[in-house]
């Protein structure tokens, strides 16, 4: 959409990136997914790499990510985004390839593909949205669901004896030599969004170096699944998610 560059003598200083399509996001009010979509496309626009970028969408709430990002994309089967991204990157080694997955997709059904893509040091950017719940199917327990957290399949709270522990897959992946840059972020405040954008910029720049996988976890909210208002969900995220999933760089390039 073309917006005027001036308004009553004021200058345009922020508009929707041209790399997003016209389609309004279908996400629930306050959901972090679309902020991450937008940041990816802002970086693609600013780096001028729309023609060189191919993305992979997951199964989950962001299954329609390709409806919003105005780039060539593939829709992967549940959990297989990084295998699909591997196939793309091997055929198109000079292109920027990223995968985009939620917690169930990346850290449960797709754990093998996730670990081995990083272990091979595939030169891709893997975006991991962790909101501790299966949003699309109606709020079931995810591998990252916190202990005692109530979901539709842990109605009495996640208990470790029967359901195991919330998996810190990002720390696990950082152990692998194929991981080049591993960082955990959030989109709950202005500063957090700015930091995430920097991390995405760095990851795309690193991809050109062919040194390994860049992995960004975004600790995000699910107001509908958590049964909270968006503002409450961001407060809950800060109080409950960050102690388990602390923000910051987990592995940074040595050179």
């Amino acid at each position: 959409m073309d917006v005027p560059t001036t308004l009553n003598g004021y200058e345009l200083i922020y508009k929707k990136p041209s790399t997003l399509t016209e389609k309004p996001f279908h996400y629930c009010p306050g959901c972090g997914h679309s902020v991450v979509h937008r940041l990816l496309m802002e970086v693609v626009e600013e780096m001028g790499i729309q023609e060189q970028t191919v993305g992979v969408a997951p199964v989950g709430c962001s299954v329609f990510a390709y409806d919003y990002m105005d780039i060539d994309m593939q829709e992967a089967a549940h959990g297989r985004a990084t295998a699909v991204a591997t196939g793309i990157k091997r055929i198109l080694p000079d292109k920027f390839v990223f995968s985009y997955q939620g917690d169930g997709d990346l850290a449960a059904i797709g754990t093998a593909e996730t670990i081995h893509a990083v272990n091979r040091g595939e030169n891709i950017l893997m975006i991991f949205i962790n909101n501790a719940i299966y949003g699309m199917t109606g709020g079931q327990m995810a591998p990252t669901t916190l202990l005692n957290q109530v979901t539709s399949t842990s109605p009495y709270g996640r208990n470790k004896e029967a359901m195991g522990y919330p998996i810190k897959i990002t720390e696990l992946l950082a152990q692998l030599p194929g991981a080049y840059y591993v960082s955990r972020h959030a989109v709950y405040t202005v500063n957090a969004v700015r930091k995430l954008k920097k991390a995405i910029e760095k990851s795309f720049a690193y991809q050109k170096l062919n040194r390994g996988t860049c992995f960004i976890e975004v600790v995000s909210n699910c107001p509908s699944g958590w049964k909270m208002t968006p503002v409450e969900s961001n407060k809950w995220l800060e109080a409950n998610m960050f102690p388990q999933y602390p923000l910051g760089d987990i592995k940074i390039p040595k050179d």
Binding site: N8, E11, L12, I13, K15, K16, F25
Partner: peptide, 8 residues
């Protein structure tokens, strides 16, 4: 989250 805001 909805890129609904344009700023001048």
């Amino acid at each position: 989250p909805d890129v609904a805001i344009t700023v001048y």
